[in-house]
Design a protein around this nucleic acid. Structure first.
Lengths: 317, 317
DNA sequence: CGCACGCCTGAAAATATCTTCCAAGGGTGA
DNA sequence: TCACCCTTGGAAGATATTTTCAGGCGTGCG
């Protein structure tokens, strides 16, 4: 039942199905996982996933048959949903559910934070926003496939040249990544103009790395250059909230960001950005670790170079 | 508190003893229970109880048969032990075990708050980074002066025109703010080129708002335009980690971001960015709340306008 | 010292639960 | 409108759990 994912070989780039990034997700990641996967689920499966995410404690008590009944579906569907969430079967999902319930009970509760209302006072907004973003970070960390990160870091470290694609809000994340990598001596660029991005992607070849950042996984302006890079033989990475989206077809390594629930006052852009930045930071640190000899001097050099752009310290202490 | 376990019929349940204090013991109580009951157990049962108390996580993975094998006993004995510990059967003991394991895990998790080392495995890096950023968010939220935020929001809401200044890492945050404000119909721009920034700042006057973003509070390229805007009579905001820095002299309202400890592998840019973004988000939400009538339609309009830039959904359902 | 009783124990049968397979229903695109 | 594919639930098949039952061992009494 090995899911021989990734690996060097390019051709059998599995499309979708069975997720299962190597190991069963821990209880913590479950809620996040449900949100991530929900869009790619069928109606019945969504009902099951919803029930599970909404009342872990209650569902943990139910047998397959019970849960099927409660959700008005069949046992088969329940098992299918369990699979999709990354467990070998319902039995294991149930175990994770019990774990989640226990955690929530004990106060380590990832309990759902309240939506921000139009008339919330500003203090409340600050608190809710901070909490939401903290939750997003936790979800992202829990949902990240370490092996994929590792592979991505390796590719970046060895890259002759790195291109980063992103538009809109993701464009800023792309710039952040490129900026960081440049700072430690890598050759990284980002292209805001999608036409130029494609033009540049054509230049890539094996040994180069292309990174695409899109929350929806369906942004054509980002998919196109990645596809081109993929076809040219470059190693391709996708940072997306929809690992089953079209972008994944052209990505050697997919780094999944968390999908928080949106609300009218809190567009998805906000938490997806937080999530993407965490991934970017992880990549950066990973690369910096592996190129420490050159990265450290490069970092301080760039810092020194900017020193004169700062006004003198008020008082030397 | 539905007690209706195992629906249909199980009338002649607990035969003897079984304690049965009305409800199955929570996971927490398990270890204690084992100690209490141990003396009154037979040898084989003790072996089972011991295994269960010693390695809840491991045992939760095992089936009756597996646990029987591991303890060198039989399935029947395992079930009997489960009963003695207060559960209807092994199935339920196993669920409790999973819960216990999850609790232990979550309790042990926050122990990794150390610095990121050069040889940390990637999984550790992810965890530490996420935790660090969570901490940063909490610090920022705690340190933000609500009154200043409120005043800043008011100024932005009423602004005829908004300029945002930031260079380097803060430049991306500046772009993020401008992007967001534009989305809800405000006139906001950011200037990467410090010369152009000053040129533009000269145009500002009372009723306009200038926002400067700098972690150090000493970045001349950002201080300059803010000073100019300040002199021209615009309302000026500073988002900085050094509220006592030079920039504060030219700011009507100072929003303080948190200053996390840096380390060699984790330049300050990382957490300052997280912190700045939270502040930006708060400003954005604050403004959106107060201009809800126009903001909401503007948001969906900008979303619609970009719809065609997305590839069609894989399958419409 | 020997016997009988009773309790512990594990093997196997019985039951419950989970998983897989398959055919029917429904929606989509040509 | 038709053909296709995807989704879905029912039922058979496989596992896991629970119950039953008989043998073994120790203990206490005769």
């Amino acid at each position: 039942m090995k899911e021989t994912f990734s690996l060097p070989s390019r051709p059998p780039n599995q499309t979708r199905g069975t997720a299962a990034p190597g190991r069963t997700p821990g209880p913590t990641a479950l809620a996040a996982k449900v949100r991530t996967m929900a869009p790619s689920m069928t109606r019945s499966m969504q009902r099951v996933a919803e029930a599970v995410a909404g009342d872990p404690a209650g569902c943990a008590q139910l047998t397959v048959t019970g849960l099927a009944e409660r959700t008005g579906t069949s046992e088969a569907t329940v098992v299918r949903t369990s699979r999709l969430l990354g467990y070998p079967g319902y039995r294991d999902l149930r175990l994770a559910l019990a774990g989640l319930a226990a955690q929530q009970e004990s106060g380590a509760a990832p309990a759902v934070t309240a939506d921000i209302a139009v008339d919330d006072p500003i203090g409340e907004v600050v608190a809710k926003l901070a909490l939401d973003e903290q939750q997003t970070l936790a979800d992202t960390a829990a949902g990240l496939d370490t092996a994929q990160v590792e592979a991505a870091v390796m590719a970046l470290t060895a890259a002759r040249r790195i291109d980063v694609y992103g538009v809109g809000a993701s464009g800023l994340v792309a710039q952040d990544l490129a900026q960081k990598l440049l700072r430690i001596g890598l050759v990284a660029h980002t292209h805001a103009d999608p036409h130029l991005a494609v033009t540049n992607a054509v230049q890539l070849r094996a040994g180069d790395v292309a990174v695409a950042i899109t929350h929806s996984g369906r942004t054509v302006d980002v998919i196109e250059p990645l596809r081109v890079a993929f076809d040219r033989g470059a190693t391709t990475l996708a940072i997306t909230g929809r690992p089953e989206g079209e972008i994944a077809q052209y990505a050697d390594h997919v780094l999944t960001t968390s999908t928080a629930r949106e609300s009218e006052l809190r567009p998805a852009a906000m938490s997806s950005r937080t999530s993407q930045l965490l991934v970017v930071d992880c990549l950066f640190i990973g690369v910096a670790q592996r190129t420490y000899e050159t990265a450290a001097p490069a970092l301080s050099a760039s810092y020194e170079a900017l020193a004169h752009r700062h006004s003198p310290r008020p008082r030397a202490r």
